[in-house]
Deep mutational scan, measured.
Amino acid sequence: RKEMTAACTPRRRIINLTSVLSLQEEINEQGHEVLREMLHNHSFVGCVNPQWALAQHQTKLYLLNTTKLSEELFYQILIYDFANFGVLRLSEPAPLFDLAMLALDSPESGWTEEDGPKEGLAEYIVEFLKKKAEMLADYFSLEIDEEGNLIGLPLLIDNYVPPLEGLPIFILRLATEVNWDEEKECFESLSKECAMFYSIRKQYISEESTLSGQQSEVPGSIPNSWKWTVEHIVYKALRSHILPPKHFTEDGNILQLANLPDLYKVFERC
Rank of each mutant, 00 (worst) to 15 (best):
Ser43Asn: 14
Ala175Pro: 04
Ile79Gly: 00
Lys118Phe: 10
Thr18Met: 08
Pro162Cys: 02
Arg1Pro: 13
Gly116Tyr: 11
Ser212Pro: 09
Leu164Phe: 14
Lys131Ile: 15
Pro219Ser: 10
Asn253Gly: 10
Glu108Pro: 06
Pro162Glu: 00
Glu108Cys: 07
Val45Ala: 05
Glu3Gly: 11
Pro154Asn: 02
Ala94Cys: 08
Leu104Glu: 02
Glu29Trp: 07
Val126Lys: 09
Ala237Trp: 04
Ser43Asp: 09
Glu146Gln: 08
Glu147Pro: 08
His241Thr: 07
Ser225Ile: 06
Pro219His: 11
Val34Arg: 07
Pro93Ser: 07
Pro95Gly: 15
Glu3Pro: 09
Leu21Glu: 07
Thr112Tyr: 07
Phe97Trp: 11
Tyr75Val: 02
Pro219Ile: 12
His42Pro: 00
Ser216Arg: 14
Thr176His: 10
Gly116Val: 09
Cys194Phe: 12
Asp251Ala: 07
Ile15Thr: 07
Glu134Val: 08
Glu119Ile: 12
Gly148His: 05
Gln58Ile: 08
Ile125Met: 06
Leu102Asp: 13
Ser109Trp: 08
Leu150Thr: 02
Pro10Phe: 10
Ile144Gly: 00
Glu127Asn: 10
Leu64Ala: 04
Ser191Lys: 01
Ser189Gly: 15
Glu134Lys: 10
Lys236Arg: 09
Leu260Gln: 10
Ser240Ala: 13
Ile27Asn: 03
Val161Gly: 05
Lys265Leu: 05
Ile151Ser: 11
Arg89Met: 15
Leu136Gly: 01
Leu90Arg: 02
Tyr139Ile: 04
Tyr235Lys: 00
Arg89Gln: 15
Ile125Phe: 13
Phe197Ser: 00
Leu102Asn: 11
Asn253Glu: 15
Ser221Thr: 13
Ala100Pro: 02
Leu172Gln: 07
Ser240Arg: 13
Glu183Val: 01
Asn253Tyr: 15
Tyr198Asp: 00
Glu185Tyr: 09
Trp52Lys: 01
Phe197Asp: 00
Leu96Pro: 00
Gly152Tyr: 03
Glu147Met: 07
Thr176Phe: 13
Leu96Trp: 02
Ala94Met: 12
Ile242Gly: 01
Leu164Gln: 09
Asp98Thr: 08
Leu96Arg: 00
Ala94Asp: 05
Glu92Ala: 12
Val161Met: 14
Leu260Tyr: 08
Leu96Lys: 02
Arg13Pro: 05
Thr5Gln: 05
Pro10His: 06
Val34Cys: 12
Glu26His: 11
Trp111Lys: 07
Pro162Ile: 02
Gly46Leu: 15
Arg89Asn: 09
Gln203Asp: 15
Val234Glu: 00
Asn84Lys: 03
Phe170Ile: 00
Arg1Lys: 12
Glu71Lys: 06
Met101Asp: 02
Ser225Cys: 13
Ser109Arg: 07
Arg173Cys: 03
Gly31Asn: 08
Gln56Pro: 01
Ser221Pro: 14
Leu69Val: 06
Val218Trp: 09
Glu134Trp: 05
His241Arg: 08
Leu104Thr: 04
Glu123Ile: 12
Glu108Trp: 07
Phe248Tyr: 06
Lys227Ser: 05
Asp115Met: 07
Glu217Cys: 13
Ser189Cys: 11
Leu102Thr: 14
Leu99Trp: 02
Glu193Ser: 04
Tyr62Glu: 00
Glu26Met: 13
Ser189Asp: 13
Trp228Gly: 07
Leu142Phe: 12
Leu136Phe: 04
Glu71Ser: 07
Asn224Ala: 14
Tyr264Asp: 15
Leu69Phe: 05
Met135His: 03
Leu155Arg: 15
Ile157His: 02
Thr9Cys: 09
Glu72Thr: 08
His40Arg: 14
Lys130Gln: 14
Gly152Gln: 05
Pro10Ala: 06
Cys186Ala: 05
Ser206Pro: 14
Pro219Arg: 14
Leu104Phe: 12
Ser141Thr: 11
Pro117Gly: 11
Ala237Gln: 07
Lys68Asn: 08
Pro107His: 14
Leu129His: 02
Pro50Val: 14
Val20Ser: 02
Glu193Cys: 07
Phe267Gln: 15
Asp251Val: 05
Pro245Val: 02
Leu69Tyr: 02
Arg201Pro: 03
Trp111Asn: 05
Gln30Val: 15
Glu113Val: 11
Ala100Trp: 00
Ser199Trp: 00
Glu92Tyr: 08
Leu21Cys: 09
Ser191Asp: 01
Asn84Gln: 05
Val20Thr: 04
Tyr235Met: 05
Leu63Met: 09
Ile15Gly: 04
Lys118Gly: 05
Pro10Leu: 07
Ile205Asn: 04
Thr59Ala: 13
Cys270Pro: 12
Leu35Pro: 03
Val20Pro: 03
Phe82Gln: 03
Lys192Pro: 02
Leu129Ser: 02
Met4His: 06
Asp145Ala: 04
Glu193Leu: 06
Asn65Trp: 00
Ile79Gln: 02
His241Cys: 05
Leu104Ser: 03
Thr112Ser: 13
Leu61Gln: 04
Asn41Gly: 15
Arg239Phe: 01
Phe187Trp: 06
Leu190His: 00
Ile157Leu: 13
Pro245Phe: 02
Asn65Thr: 01
Thr18Ala: 08
Trp111Tyr: 12
Lys2Trp: 14
Ala237Thr: 07
Ala53Ser: 09
Leu129Glu: 01
Val230His: 00
Leu96Gly: 00
Gly110Val: 11
Gly213Gln: 09
Leu150Ser: 02
Ile254Pro: 01
Lys246Leu: 11
Met196Tyr: 12
Thr249Lys: 15
Ile233Tyr: 04
Leu155Tyr: 07
Leu61Arg: 03
Asp158Lys: 12
Arg239Glu: 02
Glu114Asn: 12
Arg89Asp: 13
Lys265Val: 04
Leu102Tyr: 10
Asn159Pro: 03
Asn49Phe: 02
Ser225Glu: 10
Asn149Met: 14
Met135Arg: 03
Glu183Trp: 02
Asp105Cys: 12
Ile77Tyr: 02
Glu268Arg: 07
Val20Gln: 00
Ser189His: 13
Cys8Tyr: 10
Leu104Ala: 05
Ala175His: 06
Arg13Gly: 06
Gly152His: 09
Val20Leu: 07
Asn28Leu: 15
Asp105Trp: 03
Ile171Gln: 02
Thr249Asn: 10
Glu217Thr: 12
Glu165Pro: 08
Ser221Asn: 14
Glu147His: 10
Leu104Met: 13
Tyr198Ile: 00
Glu26Gly: 09
Glu183Asp: 04
Tyr62Leu: 13
His232Thr: 05
Leu255Glu: 06
Ile157Ser: 02
Glu185His: 08
Leu167Gly: 00
Glu188Ile: 08
Glu33Val: 08
Gly31Tyr: 12
Asp105Ala: 13
Lys118Ala: 06
Leu211His: 10
Asn49Asp: 15
Leu243Lys: 12
Ser43Val: 14
Lys130Leu: 09
Ile125His: 12
Ala175Asp: 00
Leu90Pro: 05
Pro10Asp: 09
Gln203Lys: 14
Lys118Asn: 05
Lys118Glu: 04
Lys184Gly: 05
Leu21Gly: 06
Trp111Leu: 06
Pro117Trp: 07
Asp98Met: 08
Lys236Glu: 12
Arg269Asn: 11
Met101Tyr: 15
Lys2Ile: 11
Gln256Met: 15
Leu102Lys: 13
Arg89Ser: 15
Pro244Leu: 03
Asn149Asp: 10
Arg11His: 08
Glu123Thr: 14
Pro10Lys: 02
Pro219Met: 10
Glu147Val: 14
Arg36Ile: 05
Thr67Val: 02
Leu142Tyr: 02
Phe248Ala: 03
Pro163Val: 09
Gly31Lys: 06
His57Met: 06
Ile169Asn: 14
His247Ala: 13
Ala122Cys: 11
Gln214Ile: 09
Ser221Glu: 15
Leu174Ile: 12
Val34Tyr: 11
His247Pro: 04
Arg239Ser: 04
Ser191Val: 08
Leu102Glu: 14
Leu129Phe: 13
Glu26Ser: 09
Pro168Arg: 03
Thr66Cys: 00
Val34Lys: 07
Thr18Glu: 13
Ile205Ser: 05
Glu165Cys: 09
Tyr62Arg: 00
Val34Glu: 14
Gly86Phe: 08
Glu33Tyr: 08
His40Thr: 14
Asn259Ile: 05
Gln215Asn: 12
Phe187Ile: 11
Asp145Thr: 07
His241Ser: 09
Ile205Phe: 11
Thr67Arg: 04
Gly116His: 06
Leu121Asp: 04
Leu211Thr: 08
Leu90Phe: 15
Ser22Val: 15
Gly86Thr: 15
Glu268Val: 05
Ile14Cys: 12
Glu72Val: 06
Phe44Leu: 04
Pro163His: 07
Met101Ser: 09
Glu268Tyr: 05
Leu255Val: 10
Ser212Glu: 15
Glu193Asn: 06
Cys47Gln: 03
Leu69Ile: 06
Leu96Phe: 00
Thr5Asn: 06
Glu147Cys: 13
Lys68Phe: 08
Asn16Leu: 10
Ala103Gln: 02
Gly116Arg: 06
Pro107Leu: 11
Leu96His: 00
Leu243Phe: 10
Pro154Glu: 00
Leu167Thr: 03
Phe82Ala: 03
Thr9Asn: 11
Ile169Ser: 13
Cys194Trp: 03
Asp98Gln: 09
Pro154Trp: 01
Val178Leu: 03
Ile254His: 02
Glu183Tyr: 01
Val234Ile: 14
Val126Trp: 04
Asp158Arg: 13
Pro93Glu: 09
Ile14Leu: 12
Arg12His: 15
Asn84Gly: 04
Asn179Gln: 12
Asp181Ser: 12
Pro107Arg: 11
Leu99Val: 11
Gly148Glu: 09
